[in-house]
Nucleic acid binder design. Structure first.
Ligand SMILES: NC(=O)c1ccc[n+]([C@@H]2O[C@H](COP(=O)([O-])OP(=O)(O)OC[C@H]3O[C@@H](n4cnc5c(N)ncnc54)[C@H](O)[C@@H]3O)[C@@H](O)[C@H]2O)c1
Ligand SMILES: NC(=O)c1ccc[n+]([C@@H]2O[C@H](COP(=O)([O-])OP(=O)(O)OC[C@H]3O[C@@H](n4cnc5c(N)ncnc54)[C@H](O)[C@@H]3O)[C@@H](O)[C@H]2O)c1
Lengths: 232, 232
DNA sequence: CCCACTTTGTGCGTGCTTTCACAAGCGCGT
DNA sequence: ACGCGCTTGTGAAAGCACGCACAAAGTGGG
């Protein structure tokens, strides 16, 4: 694991690549657990569920970290991807809305394992505020700014009801948070420079339903009471 | 066993469009609640956080449902999008793994509202099996096939630990499920023709971390947002 | 009827993404 | 030293997605 922080990488890794790096990282860590020293692009691509040419091109954006005829050294690549993703430093996360979902997120162990630390939990319900979840005491949402600033939070997670999400988002931003992960089913409006990603269960199900319906239409699969209406 | 079908997209609606239709649908339903009869592409695009030309092109894939000089009739468009997405029929969902996350999903109300009905819950833990969550009794995972078939499940949700996810996925497939939503942090391998989507919290956080690091890095400019609210 | 105005639907240029295909590089055995 | 087999890194091509800009199509007022 040689440290190598110069910058041969052409600045600007494509978004599509960035979205796949965590997948590669996870596959590599599984190999690490099995003490596999090196891996070929073919094998790693299979583990990550992508085309091997795509994997190589993705990795080439980070630098030339492979050895022709051999493959990639697992440990070295883990380090390089971690560094590129910013996982060599710790990130403090605040979760707003400690309901069913918020609690599941807070309790989730797979978080802290990789550089993300839950630094603050926030809720509006007096019955929840003051309780301790995952070793963190739930603070009142009214003190968001104070808590977020003092905990040095850089990533805000929104798990409140949809009606409160926009408000909470702006308060996160006012408190200096520029990265937000939103679970509420609303489109958030935030100032330029703030990065919002959303996780939307309902949308995922609807996309699955679309494809399922298409399969059912084409094939002779059993429909469950669809309409016979055709597009005009 | 392929990880991902190449792109069986017979000519039809582009994937990128399909992924946005649920967003439009949600915005339209909000308009419906406010009894707005018609909406322009400009206004709907703003509500959905997209470019209006993109919205019009997306909708044009469904047909010519707008009126020039006027806009789109909200109710009609809701129906057309719903039909295209397959929401005019009901979909039965099974959730495997009734832990923290699985319980949150089962309890989540925003599901049923859009044609998705929780038909079965499955777990391996004797302490969980037999309990009732969200008015559904948790069945034992060993009876997956029987339960899934008798409940007519068409969408399987995996919220088990990562180690069990692949196994559960294959059992879903054997029971006839061809649409799977996976919350476990693993790449699933399924036979061709089975549609898998994943929701991965950890990946989302890592992507946020990457962008946050980039903003903090060489880039010394402080994003002065002003008050310009940008839809995301 | 005509005209000014609004808004849709889409042709087209631009840039990003994926995939193929292969030369160049590396290790190993002889 | 040399050739062979394996694997990377990357040009080039094909495929998509996005968004501008505008003609076509509709509304409403006079
Ligand atoms: N549970 C799921 O599986 C699921 C799935 C998809 C999306 N979501 C979305 O995630 C969000 C949370 O879901 P949930 O099931 O945990 O709901 P929940 O009702 O169990 O929890 C919401 C929590 O937010 C708190 N809250 C309300 N207003 C607040 C405010 N202004 N500031 C801070 N906290 C506030 C409430 O006190 C409550 O504890 C919702 O927007 C929901 O639509 C949930
Ligand atoms: N909780 C989160 O916020 C969160 C976030 C991202 C991803 N995930 C992933 O979601 C999954 C579930 O997370 P969780 O927090 O609910 O975990 P959990 O441990 O609370 O729940 C897991 C449940 O699955 C059951 N189970 C175990 N093996 C099973 C099997 N073979 N068949 C059926 N059920 C089985 C267990 O009995 C338990 O009830 C995990 O893969 C986790 O990595 C969770």
């Amino acid at each position: 694991m040689t440290n190598r922080p110069p910058r041969p990488r052409g600045r600007g890794i494509p978004d599509a690549t960035v979205a796949r790096l965590p997948v590669y990282l996870r596959a590599l860590q599984a190999l690490q657990d099995r003490e596999t020293p090196t891996v070929s692009s073919e094998a790693l691509a299979a583990a990550a569920g992508v085309n091997s040419a795509k994997l190589r091109k993705d990795l080439s954006h980070l630098g030339s970290y492979g050895t022709r005829g051999v493959g990639y050294e697992v440990e070295y690549l883990v380090y390089q991807i971690s560094r590129e993703l910013g996982l060599t430093q710790d990130w403090s996360v605040a979760i707003a809305g400690i309901g069913n979902l918020g609690r599941a997120l807070a309790d989730y162990g797979g978080f802290g394992s990789r550089g993300f630390r839950i630094a603050a939990l926030l809720d509006a319900d007096p019955a929840v505020v003051g309780r301790t979840v995952a070793a963190v005491e739930v603070g009142h949402i009214d003190r968001l700014e104070e808590i977020v600033r003092s905990a040095g939070v850089s990533i805000g997670v929104i798990a409140t009801p949809a009606a409160s999400a926009q408000d909470v988002a702006l308060r996160f931003v006012e408190a200096g948070v520029t990265s937000i992960l939103n679970f509420a089913p609303v489109v958030l409006s935030v100032p330029e420079g703030v990065d919002v990603r959303k996780v939307d269960l309902s949308i995922e199900l609807q996309i699955l339903a679309f494809h399922a319906q298409r399969r059912a239409d084409g094939d002779g699969r059993r429909p469950v009471g669809g309409t016979g209406l055709e597009p005009v």
